[in-house]
Design a protein around this nucleic acid. Structure first.
Lengths: 238, 238
DNA sequence: AGGTGTGAATTATTTCACAGCG
DNA sequence: CGCTGTGAAATAATTCACACCT
């Protein structure tokens, strides 16, 4: 209490204290998941904006186009630097470059789809992935009648060769589009072979080591959210 | 300041005050989106649990199976009632019934898919939807070569007949799986025809009236989240 | 003993509001 | 002026911790 707020001599890094320390004395601020999601939305909107030939954009416009508030836009961006010009706004091409760098979109990411069923094949040919630098290199399946074929230009290969494919094709990301029961075992093999990130469409909780990135997309869950909103008379716009 | 905290005589419903009022004096507590999402996860896990013939479950087990904490499970459920038995846990079949009721899954929801492309047709045949009572009744498209056909038992109809289909088939929910540019106009028509909820897969911000429920699934955005996590050395498990 | 239900405390996220710069 | 960048304030969500039941 008597020491200055910025340098108390007996301050020890207790739980809670630690977070505070990180936040105030390092540049390793925790960026929330919601912030990252919004950055993607800003990027999408900026690209559209650029297509229309516009040069600068204000936090106001960006917020309106992505369903958030101007303060939120500025706060989100301020985690990563000062990209705007006061009185003017942000230069569209420059901000696109910055956000792409933040999101790690300056390179090509190599993607393998696990499961060549309806969802897997639909995702393999999804044009938005390629547009942002996610290149789907192959699908794998265990169905003999599918192996050797191709879907939207992407070859279907034998899941038995998973490890070899991951290593030869330098796979970064796997999209899990298998039945729920098969997912965890394949993910374990993929992790062991070197895949560092997973986008999971199977309706199961996947266990992965802490250093592996994982996101879940659960479509039935989204419909249930709509069902809840309609039933309870509330509205959930997310 | 001098009045009791629970009944200050000049308390007016200012912004902020209003929320406090609702929270403390009505039973209309705001349920957060994250709570609703977790209820869906609990339900999924409970169904699996029941399949294995287990009769009771603790908040501990439920949390472990869904990637959250026991306190969170209890808090989520307590928004809606007291479903557990102290010292014992929750009865699995009973809790399933309760959660299904909360989420509004006691009825069949009728679903129309807008767009019979890869994503649309994949979703039309997605077995998890039917399992929770979401019945995909039809797809619509403007491609003559698709109209009249069927995908996974679901007929493809002419988008020109959208209004008639919504009304005749009593559509509750539309899944938007069209190209980005076509989405908003179709959604406007669907709203006018009586659709009350939308699950949007198109990478655009849709504008809908406040009483219409809307959820967005943006798959490129999820991949970008993984890209960020790998680039920044942080991990985002969601 | 074992596990729920829930206020209170903590932590996270959003919004406000305004100094300061172009 | 107009609009950013950002501490401070307000809200929201999560976690703690414990009284209380069975």
């Amino acid at each position: 209490m008597t020491a200055s707020r910025r340098r108390a001599s007996v301050d020890v890094l207790l739980p809670g204290r630690y977070e505070w320390y990180v936040k105030h004395f390092t540049n390793t601020r925790r960026v929330s998941d919601s912030t990252v999601r919004r950055l993607s939305l800003y990027l999408r909107y900026l690209e559209e904006f650029q297509r229309r030939g516009l040069k600068t954009v204000s936090s106001q416009e960006l917020a309106h186009g992505t369903g958030t508030t101007p303060a939120q836009v500025r706060k989100d961006l301020s985690f990563f630097g000062s990209f705007g010009k006061r009185g003017l706004g942000y230069f569209v091409p420059e901000l696109i470059t910055k956000i792409r760098a933040i999101l790690g979109l300056g390179r090509e990411w190599r993607v393998l789809v696990l499961g060549a069923g309806r969802i897997g094949t639909a995702l393999a040919g999804y044009p938005d992935f390629a547009r942002q630098g996610f290149r789907v290199v192959a699908l794998v399946d265990n169905d003999r009648s599918k192996i050797g074929g191709a879907s939207g230009g992407v070859p279907v290969r034998d899941v038995a060769d998973l490890e070899r494919i991951v290593q030869q094709e330098l796979i970064d990301i796997a999209i899990v589009a298998t039945p729920a029961g098969a997912a965890q075992a394949l993910v374990d093999r993929a992790v062991a072979a070197g895949v560092r990130a997973f986008l999971n469409f199977a309706p199961v909780k996947l266990d992965v080591p802490a250093e592996i990135a994982l996101r879940n997309v659960n479509m039935a869950l989204e419909l249930e959210g709509l069902s809840f909103a309609m039933t309870s008379g509330r509205v959930l716009a997310v």
